Amino acid sequence: MATEKTAKAKAWALFDRIVEIAAPDGEHTNPWVIAADGKRRYQPDYGTLCLLLGVPLSLKANTQSGVPALALDVWLSYELRRAGFGPDQTWPRPEHPRILPASVANLLKALPREDATAVKKLLKKEGAITGVTSASAKILGKNYLKQVDVIITDWSTGPELLISTKRMDSSFGKNAPNRVEESYGDAKNLRLRHPQAALGFVFGLSANALVEEPGTAEWLFDLLIKLGQEDDAYHATGLVLMEYSGASVIDDGEEPEQGVPEEPGVEPQDDVVPAADGDLEKSIAKLPKVKIRLDATPDELDPGRFLAAMVDRVLKATPVTMHKGARKRRAEPASF
């Protein structure tokens, strides 16, 4: 377990620096563009995604460590900030603690500087304070608690966006049925309790599947498309088809156990970022190359289409007085 925590801490240091470089001083590019056909489209930052996906390859982190799937979570949260949602609204946040309720974030802004500094010091300590900070978010569905990978929520609104991610890098025929079946059950569980929330699912798949098991890949694509068309499942589904230039992620067939909430008190935490050693930029420059195979991605599962659907769903389900930053960005797309 100690090795896994070290791998995740190293990954967070790299993830945070990559996102920081992509959005210097917290200034994000506008993802909305007007395409050649005159229609507004969401243009994801695939360059940043490729860098993030290179981190688990560089660290040789297997799926059980949680690092490979975490790369997708970090990217989706980053994309939502590009769309205009605040850094404290989208979880995981771009700094530790990854989960911080909006009420606590607002309190920090209102406190005198000296008091705010003391509270921030407490929040940034290793270990999560139950009910205040956390490394992951668990949401109650109709029948059971479910860890949600990317989320926008507040006590006054309830969950507004819930995105689950899965990743598969090998043993496609063996692992695909289980992961899709789990995702379908999770969708129903969350949708029945939170019908107004934008509910999405993103599947990260090694492009090796196209060559090694093309039949399984075709079957999987079809199921993912149908998952995004069910009236009582996801509002949209997306596919990140990854092609590596070197060694693949070590897929041991299992992702970390989500478990159940622990008893009140201080929870162990493994997302505390170690102090920068001055070599982060060098490490980022040497990350293995990753390519996103958009050419082999069905239109219904295009990441840009998925993100547009999620943002649109959140904005349609809330008054115009809310999420003004996101509304402004969508209303002022750039030429593409």
Rank of each mutant, 00 (worst) to 15 (best):
A23L: 04
V74L: 06
P97Y: 11
E27Q: 09
G86C: 07
W91E: 14
S65Q: 12
R113L: 14
L52A: 01
P68I: 03
L49P: 00
A110G: 14
K109Y: 13
P56Q: 04
R41N: 10
R17A: 06
A71L: 00
A69K: 12
T117I: 13
P24V: 07
K109E: 15
Q89D: 10
K10G: 12
S58V: 01
P87C: 08
T29R: 07
V19I: 09
A35R: 10
P31W: 08
G26H: 06
R81S: 02
L49C: 01
L70T: 11
K120F: 12
L51N: 01
N30E: 00
N30R: 02
V33T: 10
S77N: 08
W32R: 02
G84H: 03
A35S: 13
D73V: 04
L52Q: 06
R98W: 14
A71V: 02
L52F: 01
P31F: 05
T48R: 02
A69I: 02
T90F: 07
A36T: 11
T117E: 15
L70F: 12
T90P: 04
L49Y: 05
K120G: 10
A36G: 06
S77D: 09
R41T: 10
W32C: 03
D115A: 15
K120V: 12
E114R: 15
K109M: 14
Y78S: 00
L80I: 02
P87R: 10
V74Y: 09
Y42L: 04
E114S: 15
L108S: 15
P56T: 04
D88V: 13
T117C: 14
A36P: 02
W91C: 09
Y78G: 05
A13Y: 09
G26E: 08
A36V: 11
L59D: 00
L52E: 00
Q64S: 14
E79Y: 03
L51I: 00
Q64C: 10
P31V: 00
K10N: 15
I34K: 11
V119S: 13
V74F: 05
R81D: 04
L80G: 04
N30L: 06
T117N: 15
R82E: 05
A22G: 04
N106H: 15
L57N: 03
L59C: 08
C50K: 05
P94F: 09
R113F: 13
D16W: 13
T29Y: 02
A35T: 12
D37R: 07
P112S: 12
V33L: 09
P97S: 14
P94N: 10
G26M: 07
A118K: 15
